[in-house]
Write a protein that binds this DNA or RNA. Sequence first.
RNA 1: GCCCAGAUGGCGAAAUCGGCAGACGCAUCAGACUUAAAAUCUGAUGGUGCGUAAGCACCGUGCGGGUUCAAGUCCCGCUCUGGGCACCA
Length: 871
Amino acid sequence: MPYNFTEIEQRWQRYWLQHGTFRTDTHDRSRPKCYILDMFPYPSGDGLHIGHPEGYTATDIIARYKRHCGFNVLHPMGWDAFGLPAEQYAMKTNVHPRITTERNINNFRRQLQAIGFSYDWEREVNTTDPAYYRWTQWIFLTMYDSWFDYRTNRGRPISDLIEEFRRDGCANIDCARYCGDDACCFTASGWNAMTPLEQQQVLANFRLVYEAETPVNWCEGLGSVLANEEVDEWVEKGYTVERRPMRQWMMRITAYADRLLDGLEGLDWPASTLQMQREWIGRSTGAEITFTTEDGQPLKVFTTRADTLFGVTFVTVAPEHPLIASLTTEAQRPTVEEYRRQASLKSELDRQVSDEKTGVFTGSYALHPASGARVPIWTGDYVLASYGTGAVMGVPAHDERDFTFAKKFALPIAPVIAPPSDHPSYQAVMAGEACYTDPGTMTNSAQFDGLDSAAGKEAVTAHLAAIGAARATIQYKQRDWLFSRQRYWGEPIPLVRYQNGIIEPLPASQLPLRLPEIEEFKPSGSTESPLALAADWLTVEHPEHGTGRRETNTMPQWGGSCWYYLRYIDPTNDSFAIDPELEKYWMPVDLYIGGGEHAVLHLLYARFWHKVLFDLGHTSTDEPFQRLIHQGLILGEDGQKMSKSRGNVINPDVVIAEAGADSLRLFEMFMGPLEMVKPWSTKGIEGVRRFLNRSWRMVVGDEEVNNLAVITDRAMTPEEERVLHGTIKKVTEDIEGIRLNTAISALMVFVNEFIGLEEKPRQAMEAFVVLLSPLAPHIAEEMWQKLGHEGTVAYQPWPQYDEAKIATNEVEIVLQVNSKIRGKMMMPAGTEPNVLEESALSHNAVRELIEGKTIRKIIAVKDKLVNVIAG
RNA sequence: GCCCAGAUGGCGAAAUCGGCAGACGCAUCAGACUUAAAAUCUGAUGGUGCGUAAGCACCGUGCGGGUUCAAGUCCCGCUCUGGGCACCA
């Protein structure tokens, strides 16, 4: 008779909640801490799907294991509950997103509890709870009131900067890094003479949160901008998305680019994720080189290949380049204007997809900074306005893009980097017929001839720098973070803009700035969020600045998830986001498991916020997540991605009803390595379910027919001890290494060995139950009780193994003749190779085969094999 | 195009300081129990060939080379699948 999993599982789930079994005392310093974190879910209306419990089961197993090992474990769960679906639903049905969200959360919580996860439910956080987003807003304002000081490579309060301006003006500040040029420079008295509005404008160049007019993905149907990564999804659903410039709040994440890059060193993260973050940040070291137009205007280009300077045969500027009008001659103006118009109609995506190069001549020329040669200035949309200086030097001989462009428009090609002379296309390159982008030797480059590319880059840059025509510089692919959305269901941005132009943050004492109640959920009709319709909420009076209007943009969904791992540590603190003492003890997160789809965005944004909080002294750690693992996707039984339209979605509620939560947990882990993509199998779950039934019969027996397992305190045989200790060792090491599939097979082997015994040794059964309990906790609790214990098994000490008891006296030695297996022999473990050799040679199977042959060589490996080479 | 990960029985997978490939599980087949079925238990199960049989031989970890006494594992060159990036100068 199989055990009654439904009854047992529900009973223990109630027990854990009622007894607060997994409540964490964060103030307990008597034991080492372990912080095990899941990526919290967006509580969608569809409920939990089978992919969620995969990572959650893995963390739960580790958390439970660590409790057995004596750690004080923090293992929380919460809800990333702002987001577009609830708002979309509200627009259709006029049901408030708060209500939908609450309903979905209740369903998610019920489902997670039904799987028996050992979360401390008293620490649940919800990003839509004003008590939570109060501190999201507080962090936002903290960042608004901060700037990045490149001199110390740290974020600092803006008040420090104001103080410095009052005292020294911007004398000690590299303004070009903040304002783009030195035009803003001022003295102390200059600063003090500025109006508040003027000062505000200067400070905006420094703040980590600033406003910019930037092209965004505007979706008319949703009445909101979309992040680049959201565009495809909505276009697929039939919405149209267009690029349009809009005033938006930005976060200056690029200031932290170097810190975010350097911080990756030393993190125990998947190599591919580290690589993706590095590529996303995209640091390139190079030089900004100044060409001069014939009428004396400077025209700056960015290059990583200063060594190819003498190969420049043209300059290309982006169609949106600020100087384009003055670069264009009257004769070419109609052509250029038409080209710019066409380029503006193409989306950034269209531009990148087409490999055909387009462009037109501006009619003007630039002077080469080293040779003085006159080179034509073109405009082409293969040059991105938003990267570097928006202009490039065209070196067709050594850059594929420039090569294609030059070929199309019959521009000259001048080779200046010689490939190695044995290079297959040496002749073609030197004849200007092929493009060569690898390093080589400089040639046709005046005094630099003979230098290799690496030395050439430095030498050319230094030479130009000496005449004021270049400076070494670093560029990043990463752009600043577009931080506003035209949505209702998000954190309100706590800023007020007054009629006199002054922008004031809300005092911290007035947080949270709650979302207004609105009657009807509909787009505002303008490019503003529905908050623009909440007239009472919108207007603010200020004694000094007069009437003000609140910011109607809300924060993107990423905001709340940037710091939730901190709030779990101190979730009910209403005087601060997190108690610094608790933060210091509990951070960093020891293990973080979540989907690889967050490899860049969430994990980069959260690191960014964390670093700002660290710089300002609010956290003690520079990096939040020490160890990171991505669980692999679970596919449908047909090997396809699970989706409603394919009809291959597996519902965890159904699996639990049919096979039980313990079986679900075990099977999620037994399918294969955690990180791997793997298909679900309804048949396969029967296997782990049978294993649990067998375990039950081994420890408890069949109660139905009163055939109870006989468990005695007898001593174990050496063979039983060997199996037990081997199992403890394997399970321990596999859980530590998060190889949960093989940990489960080790337990299966154990049951296969012990289930047939007439009298089971109590010691082995108790150890087994503890080993099983992280993986299948409900059945383990019940078995523990059946073994005569009171209370929970969750804190029982983890069984220890004795290496000496695992070792066998005799080992099987493989006998090979000419590398083919010809026999086996039993030998005492640890027998020296020379002894093995002798025994092998006297072994019948070997003797027969080497009869009459010359022994050329013998390889003997201790405890493994003997290989006799004869011929 | 570039970068990363992966490819092992009918299926999910195990085994990587190079040392018996296929642990564990699914499926299948045979047997036991049963009036019967389910459940459970026992056994078999990579392929090909030979043998009445115990067994024997050969082949076998995506493909082609290489190193080695010995390769799923190391090296070189490919193919396919999945993921990421994609005019970033």
